[in-house]
Design a protein around this nucleic acid. Sequence first.
DNA 1: AATTCCAGAGAACAGTTGTTAACTGCATGG
DNA 2: CCATGCAGTTAACAACTGTTCTCTGGAATT
Lengths: 215, 215
Amino acid sequence: MSHTLGVRQAQKQKTRRALLDAALALLEEQSLSSLGLREVTRAVGVAPTAFYRHFRSTADLGVALVEEALGSLHPMIRTTVSPAEDGDERIDRAVELIAGHVAAHPAHVRFIARERHGGVQPVREAIRAQLARFAEEVKAELAKDPLSAGWSDDDLLMLAGLYVDQMLITASLFLEALDAPEEERRRVTEVATRRMRLIAIGRRHWADRPARQAG
Amino acid sequence: MSHTLGVRQAQKQKTRRALLDAALALLEEQSLSSLGLREVTRAVGVAPTAFYRHFRSTADLGVALVEEALGSLHPMIRTTVSPAEDGDERIDRAVELIAGHVAAHPAHVRFIARERHGGVQPVREAIRAQLARFAEEVKAELAKDPLSAGWSDDDLLMLAGLYVDQMLITASLFLEALDAPEEERRRVTEVATRRMRLIAIGRRHWADRPARQAG
DNA sequence: AATTCCAGAGAACAGTTGTTAACTGCATGG
DNA sequence: CCATGCAGTTAACAACTGTTCTCTGGAATT
């Protein structure tokens, strides 16, 4: 279906990539709302006006970056949460997977953490939508687990959201520890693992909590 | 000791306050890294150079805002976590307290959520330090609880951090739902409460988890 | 009453920003 | 082979930025 696209489109894609990469690099030490379009084109070595051939604005570029940073992550999420292995093993693997992802794509992780609550509304919305998708997918995997017997849909989504937020927090912790000594990264691994484990324990005993009085 | 300070210092404080307030207002729709000093002084109705009488830079102003937003919050944290009431009651009260705080100081909450991972290093560091203090204080309160018998210091700090992060997430959720219909805010309250409750359950059963094999 | 101090004003600086318009050169489709 | 399309260029615009230096009016100190 997608034959090799012409020289023309190829060049365009190449410039587009260069713009995205340059922006991502510049965003290591500032927020999207202060990223100038000229700044980006200057870093790429292209005229400022060339920017408009690819993006309406830097906010538009930001939305594209969200897609790039989170769009390809859905399969990874699915397999991580799926109830193949059991308990502690799965948690260990999940934390290591997050650590690996942060080490491989630090700029992407930083961008998401920074812009999730950042000053650019369309980007915030794009991130929110992707994370909602994650939560739904995690919920779907959790539902397959026999441990979820008797759980309401609301409670499953609650737990899924808790896991997703925890993944983000963990990723952000690994990011801060990226150029710290390995001891620090091991500490982060330890804390993140225990947090997940505590949540897993809460999940196991969720059903047998005492009923509340009706208000 | 602090008698009424002279007309001079009083005026200076007043201008300083105006600068902080104007900045906070402007930060509702952008990040600190894009906030210009002229922008702030213009909003106050004062010459750009007057800014330097109060702050070295906008980053410096940001650090002051962190102090203002989080510094006065320590007593509230302490009393919320203290083991006076029990279980579900305490959680309900905590969530309501967060909701109230967000409604009373939305700009402060937005600022912290936004700049925690924002593009200005000194501000990130200031927030990190304050949150670390929170975690230590929560840990100290948790330690008083008989439920914490047999817990290691590391585990107590782990749980405290989990609670602090959860408070921030909850606050941010309430913020997003601020001008949404009340139904939405009730939904947020419900989810936040259940998250906290699940964590509390995990805490109660933390001690009786199976021991891991030595690696 | 005379002097010092200092918050804020004013003007000017070199450099930046986003956006417009009209252009050029080259790959593409007829 | 020729006409069209379109990625990227060039030039110019008004508006904006942080920072410096000099000045001023009135409170604070002596």
